[in-house]
Design a protein around this nucleic acid. Sequence first.
DNA 1: CATGAATGAGTGTTCATTCAT
DNA 2: TATGAATGAACACTCATTCAT
Lengths: 185, 185, 185, 185
Amino acid sequence: MVETIVEATWQVLAKEGYAAANTNRIAERAGISVGSLYQYFPNKNAIVAAVQRRHHAEVASAMATAFAETAGQPLEIGIRGLVHANMQAHLADPDLHRALTAIVPAAANPETLGCIRDGIHAQLRAWLWRYRQQLIVKDLDTAAFVVQHLVEAVVHATIDGPGPTPEPKQVEDEVAAMILRYLTG
Amino acid sequence: MVETIVEATWQVLAKEGYAAANTNRIAERAGISVGSLYQYFPNKNAIVAAVQRRHHAEVASAMATAFAETAGQPLEIGIRGLVHANMQAHLADPDLHRALTAIVPAAANPETLGCIRDGIHAQLRAWLWRYRQQLIVKDLDTAAFVVQHLVEAVVHATIDGPGPTPEPKQVEDEVAAMILRYLTG
Amino acid sequence: MVETIVEATWQVLAKEGYAAANTNRIAERAGISVGSLYQYFPNKNAIVAAVQRRHHAEVASAMATAFAETAGQPLEIGIRGLVHANMQAHLADPDLHRALTAIVPAAANPETLGCIRDGIHAQLRAWLWRYRQQLIVKDLDTAAFVVQHLVEAVVHATIDGPGPTPEPKQVEDEVAAMILRYLTG
Amino acid sequence: MVETIVEATWQVLAKEGYAAANTNRIAERAGISVGSLYQYFPNKNAIVAAVQRRHHAEVASAMATAFAETAGQPLEIGIRGLVHANMQAHLADPDLHRALTAIVPAAANPETLGCIRDGIHAQLRAWLWRYRQQLIVKDLDTAAFVVQHLVEAVVHATIDGPGPTPEPKQVEDEVAAMILRYLTG
DNA sequence: CATGAATGAGTGTTCATTCAT
DNA sequence: TATGAATGAACACTCATTCAT
């Protein structure tokens, strides 16, 4: 049921935007009553936060898969996998994305967001550590921080970007190149 | 008068947050009546958009100054100037920033945002062009795009970031190194 | 306008009961919009409290008038005046009264009620003091307290009383007799 | 089971106030499900009415005990017993009382309240009748009515009274004196 | 031009009650 | 008989916007 509600919110957000995502609309879309919403979530924010968590979980999962698939391969391949996975995860549902990044962010409490980011950061850091021999960067924490935000920001800008943006493929190439040179000099 | 309203909104946003930034509060802070607000702006969104424009203008201006000051100097110096200027521009008023990036973005219409970004992008591209001889990147447009979002995202994450973030100084170093290696290999 | 709202609430309370007295109904009856309600009162409770204050002011005023009219006359006459004034003040609008005493009391914050009671108590005490020579009661404060609640309770019971109650006239006689004997032995 | 529910409501009312006394909370406290509530009571009002009945039954019982204990003794003793019993019955659980008198009264239908009052009235009247020889009041019905409401109101005011109130002991003295003088001149 | 009282659609949330299991 | 998830009407309250003065 929690899943039903999150899914309904996801859809309303993606198809009708944040403005339309009021509790009644969400309940309607979920095929339940408003009252039931509040049996599973304490308030509207909690619902939106759950949607954000789900989205980030998808991204994190895509990253984990990419890391797993490129394990043992050269760093360059791993980087391409990371960037590509991120881009793909976002290309899947650009509209939801727009709603989620451009409008909603305030909804989820900073704690939730921080927690989510920490998870991705840890994952990234662990991955970097595996290549530590060939890296010229000294502080893996900061490197992970910078890489994480670079990828996230550029992907978002490419997907949601107002105005004309470069092709995803080309962006991937550039970002991968940037990261590779940054890490290995 | 337009300036008075923008300034008032800026302050309410910075000091009381987006939730408190309703038209009555803004008018009160500006020392005028709500009615007058609507003589200078067609609706609330337009006011927030103006604040966003002003903020981006400040950033653009800081960048321009940095470029001017480092004109003729090595690329590395220019990059440091760019990154530092961005960081400084945001460190000036972190609270406003949080309100502006985390909560408001949806308010301004995409057009406005696109237009703002285009300006910064053009500036960045023109600056890159001056160093074109020593750059290994082929497409200056894409390079400017990537650099722009890298800087913006990392600065934002450093300023507003939920949870502990690296020191601004350290972030600047890493981002500058990243850009330099990306551009020159 | 404050008066208009209080009057409208009064009428809704009297004619339709507390259950019907929601903010929209009150606004409708007052011929204004809900929004305007909140320009003059911070919340619903404040409106109901104002109605209570008005009612108690009427009672206090009726008492004051009775005291003034019987000034200089024997205590017995004064007591009759007090009791009669109270009964009349309540007989004027029994329905409102029912709503106000049986249903609403919780609405007004205790402070408001305490303040109202204090006013009536002070008035009563001052009146008793004028007859202090012939009174056998020692503590005027307690005497005023007891008399105040006796009158209030019996009048309420007579007006709002569920089931058959004695005639107001007869109740007045008994209460007056009770007070006279209590005060003078 | 009915008893369990009434007891649970009593406790919620006393400890958490009327605002918290919703059917789910009551069921939870009673250790049963909401559904079961409705197997024993047709609606929420009926539950609250039962609590009121129980409270009044306690008062009536305290009065009966006082009357029995003072049977054969002088009227003055009987009156003191009556007043004291009432005060004690209320001092036992002032919080419940506040909830019950200040907030709930509307809940119970007038019929219930009337019925309850009639019982107390009858008891009081019968007691007065035993002393009829020495009373100067002519109509025992009205006398009982007045005495009943005097005691009830003053006790309530002493217990729940907003603001500072006289000491219970002193109030008892005054009320007893008042009744004695009223009945016997 | 300036005002600010008035508007009212819209919001998130509650809770007495029902009924399939 | 007991359950408790589901219901949905109802509520208090907000705030961008208007317009008579």
